[in-house]
Simulated scan of single mutants.
Amino acid sequence: MARTAARKAPAARAVAEPTQQALKSAQTRARLIEATIRCLIKYGYSSTTTLKVAAEAGMSRGAMLHHFENGGALMQATIGELMERRLRAFRRAVDNPAPDVHTLVHTYWKQLLSQTFTAFVELAIASRTDKDLARILEPAQEQFRQRWYELAIQLFPEWQQDRKSFDLALALTQNTVEGMAINRLIHGCDEAMIDPVLDNLEAQILALRPKKKKG
C-alpha cells in the first residue's frame, strides 16, 4: 500500500503543475489585455502596437507573443473583455432587488463614463475603415446586443407583454445615452444638459411602459 501511494504521488503532483501554469498564463493574458486597454486610451487604436502593449505590461514583445500569436488575437481578446465588463455592470443592476427606470438609466450612464467605454469607442470608430478590426468587432457587438437585451428584460419582466414598446424604449435609451457619452468624449456635450436629458429619457421610458391590468 505504501509503495502504491508513493508511486501515485508524483502523478498527483504532475496533475497540479499544469493547473498552476494555466493560472499563471491566465494572469499574464489578463495583464496584457489590461495594458492594451490603457494603450487604446493613451495612444488611440492606430498607434497601439504590440511593442507598446508589451512595454505597458512590462514584458518583452517575444514574451507577449507567447500568449497571443499576433496583434489580431490580442485585440480579439481585448474586445471580448470590454464587452464582458459592460455586461457585468448591467448584471449588478439585475441583482438589485427593486430595479427601476431611474436606476437603469443612471447605471447605464455611469458605465459609459468609464475607460471601458472610451476604449470601446476608440475601436468602434477605427473599425469603420479597418476591415480586419471590423471582422472582429461586429460579431462581438451583435453578441453584446443580444445579451444586453436579455439582461434588460430580466430587469423589467412586465415588458414581456409588449415587446414592441420594450424594443423602442431600449433603442431610445441606447441611442440617447451612448450618443451623449460619445459627444462628451469629443467635447461636444454641454455638461449642464446631462441631467435634464437623463430625466427626460426616464419620462419617455415610463410613458412607454405597459399599463398594469386592473383586477
Score class of each variant (00 low, 15 high):
L123D: 03
V121P: 05
R163V: 15
R85E: 15
A93F: 06
E178R: 14
D132Y: 05
L185T: 11
F117W: 12
P196S: 05
F90H: 15
L112Y: 09
A77L: 07
Q154S: 07
D195T: 04
Y108M: 13
C189H: 07
P157Q: 07
R86I: 07
V177K: 00
D95G: 04
I79Y: 04
Q111C: 11
A140M: 04
A73G: 10
H102G: 04
M180A: 15
S165F: 03
Q111M: 12
A98R: 09
A93H: 05
N200I: 00
C189F: 02
I186E: 09
Q115W: 01
P139Y: 02
S127G: 06
A73Q: 06
F90Y: 15
F166H: 04
T103M: 14
W159T: 11
L82M: 13
D199K: 07
M180C: 07
D167K: 09
T107R: 14
E81Q: 15
I194Y: 03
T118I: 03
V101E: 13
E84G: 01
T78E: 01
R145S: 09
G80Q: 11
A98E: 11
L87K: 12
N200C: 01
Q143A: 13
I136Y: 02
E84C: 01
E191W: 02
F117H: 11
L113T: 14
L172Q: 07
L104S: 06
I186F: 12
G188K: 08
R135V: 03
E81K: 12
P157F: 09
L87I: 11
L74Q: 03
N183A: 09
W109Y: 05
I194W: 05
W159L: 09
P99H: 10
D199T: 07
T116E: 08
R85C: 12
R85D: 14
L123G: 02
E158F: 03
V94L: 07
I136W: 03
A152P: 00
E178P: 03
V121L: 04
V121R: 01
E138F: 09
R145I: 01
E191V: 13
H187S: 07
A134K: 15
E191Y: 04
A152E: 06
T107I: 10
P139D: 03
Y149N: 12
K110M: 13
V121I: 12
L104Q: 04
F90S: 12
L82V: 13
T78P: 04
K164Q: 14
G179K: 08
E150C: 00
P196Y: 04
I79A: 09
R92E: 15
L155F: 03
M180L: 14
N183Q: 12
V105N: 06
I182R: 05
I79D: 08
T118S: 10
P196R: 06
V197R: 11
A203C: 03
P157H: 04
T176I: 03
R86N: 13
L112E: 08
Q161R: 14
L133G: 08
